[in-house]
C-alpha cells in the first residue's frame, strides 16, 4: 500500500510540473504581442514598456520560468492587472465558494444517484427502473443554463423560498447545488445501474445468496462495493470539473467562485489571472484524479496488493 502511494505521488508530481510549464507557456502562446492585446492598440509606448517590465517579458524565457516556479513555491502568483492586488489573495477569496458549491453538488448527486441507481438495478424493467431512468435521461438532457433559470423562476420568484443569486448564507447554496447536482446525479445513477446489473449477475452474488443473506445484505455488502469502481471513476472526473469552477452555473447564479472569476478574467484580458485560474483548475483535476486512484485502491484489494 505504501509503495503504491509513493508511486502515485511521484507520478502526480511529474504531471503537476508538466502542467505548470504548460500554463507558464500560455502567455507566450498568445499570437502577436501579448502586451498589445492586453492594453489595446491605442496604448502609449511607455505604458507598454511598463507592463512588459512588470510582467518580466523582457527577460530570457528560462529566467522567466525560473521566476515563475520560484514564485509559485512561495505562493506568489503575481499581480492581477484588473484588481491590482496579489492573485493569490483573489484566489483564496474565491476558492471557498467553489469548494462549497462542489461539495454541496456532490452531496446532492450522491444522495439522489445511489438510491435511484440501486432501485433501478434491483427491480430491473419495473416501474421503478423506468422512472429512475426517465429522470436520468431528463437530467442528462437538460442543460444547466436552462435548469438554473427554471429553478430560480419556480423557487425564488414564485415561491420565494431561496434567494435569486449571490452567496449569502446556506439558503443561497441550495439552487446552484441542485442545478449542478441533478445533472451529475443523472450520469451517476445511469452508471451505477449498469455497473450493478453486471455485478448482480456475478457468481459471487449467487454465492452470497446461497449463504442465506437477504437481498438487502447482498446489495450492501457484496454488490455495491464492486459496482462502485466504475462510478468512482466518473465521479472523480466530474468532481475535477466542479472544482475547476462550474462556469455556467456560477454565472447564472452570480456565484462568486473560480468559474465566474475565470470568465471575468478572460473578459478583462487579465492574463496573469487567467494563467493562475487555469493553473488552479489543472491542479484541482490532478489532485482529484490522484485521490480517485487512492480510493480505488482502498476499495479494490486487487489494485492495492497487486494481481496475485
Amino acid at each position: 500500500m505504501l509503495s503504491f502511494f509513493a508511486s502515485r505521488l511521484l507520478a502526480t508530481g511529474v504531471v503537476l510540473f508538466g502542467v505548470t510549464v504548460l500554463v507558464f507557456a500560455l502567455i507566450h502562446l498568445i499570437p502577436g504581442d501579448p502586451v498589445e492585446i492586453m492594453l489595446g492598440e491605442s496604448a502609449r509606448a511607455a505604458d507598454r514598456e511598463a507592463l512588459r517590465a512588470a510582467l518580466g517579458l523582457d527577460r530570457p524565457l528560462w529566467v522567466q520560468l525560473g521566476d515563475y516556479l520560484a514564485g509559485l513555491a512561495r505562493g506568489d502568483l503575481g499581480q492581477s492587472l484588473h484588481y491590482r492586488q496579489p492573485i493569490m489573495e483573489i484566489l483564496l477569496e474565491r476558492l471557498p465558494a467553489t469548494v462549497e458549491l462542489a461539495a454541496a453538488a456532490l452531496l446532492v448527486a450522491v444522495v439522489i444517484a445511489f438510491p435511484l441507481g440501486a432501485l433501478a438495478a434491483m427491480y430491473r424493467d419495473s416501474i421503478w427502473d423506468r422512472l429512475a431512468m426517465g429522470f436520468s435521461l431528463a437530467g442528462v438532457s437538460i442543460p444547466n443554463f436552462w435548469m438554473g433559470p427554471l429553478l430560480i423562476l419556480v423557487f425564488s420568484l414564485w415561491l420565494g423560498w431561496f434567494p435569486v443569486s449571490g452567496r449569502e448564507g446556506p439558503a443561497s447554496l441550495v439552487l446552484p447545488a441542485l442545478t449542478l447536482g441533478t445533472a451529475l446525479a443523472a450520469i451517476l445513477a445511469r452508471m451505477l445501474r449498469s455497473a450493478l446489473l453486471e455485478v448482480l449477475s456475478e457468481d459471487y452474488i449467487r454465492t452470497a445468496r446461497a449463504k442465506g443473506l437477504a437481498d438487502r445484505e447482498v446489495l450492501w455488502r457484496h454488490a455495491l462495493r464492486n459496482a462502485a469502481l466504475p462510478v468512482i471513476t466518473v465521479l472523480g472526473l466530474q468532481l475535477g470539473t466542479l472544482l475547476g469552477g462550474a462556469v455556467i452555473t456560477e454565472t447564472v447564479f452570480s456565484w462568486p467562485g473560480v468559474g465566474l472569476l475565470t470568465l471575468e478574467a478572460i473578459q478583462q484580458r487579465d492574463y496573469p489571472l487567467v494563467q493562475a485560474c487555469v493553473l488552479l483548475i489543472s491542479f484541482a483535476y490532478v489532485a482529484v484524479n490522484t485521490a480517485t486512484d487512492v480510493v480505488y485502491a482502498w476499495v479494490d484489494p486487487r489494485i492495492r496488493l497487486g494481481e496475485g
Binding site: 456475478e202 457468481d203 459471487y204 449467487r206 454465492t207 452470497a208 445468496r209 446461497a210 449463504k211 442465506g212 443473506l213 457484496h222 462495493r225 464492486n226 476499495v299 479494490d300 484489494p301 486487487r302
Partner: peptide, 19 residues
C-alpha cells in the same frame, strides 16, 4: 440456505467476492 443446505460452485475463481 447456508444453514441446512449449503452449496459450492464450479468456478472458485469467480464465486468468491474479490473485495
Amino acid at each position: 440456505r447456508g444453514r441446512r443446505i449449503a452449496m459450492i460452485f464450479q468456478e472458485p475463481m469467480t464465486s468468491l467476492n474479490p473485495v
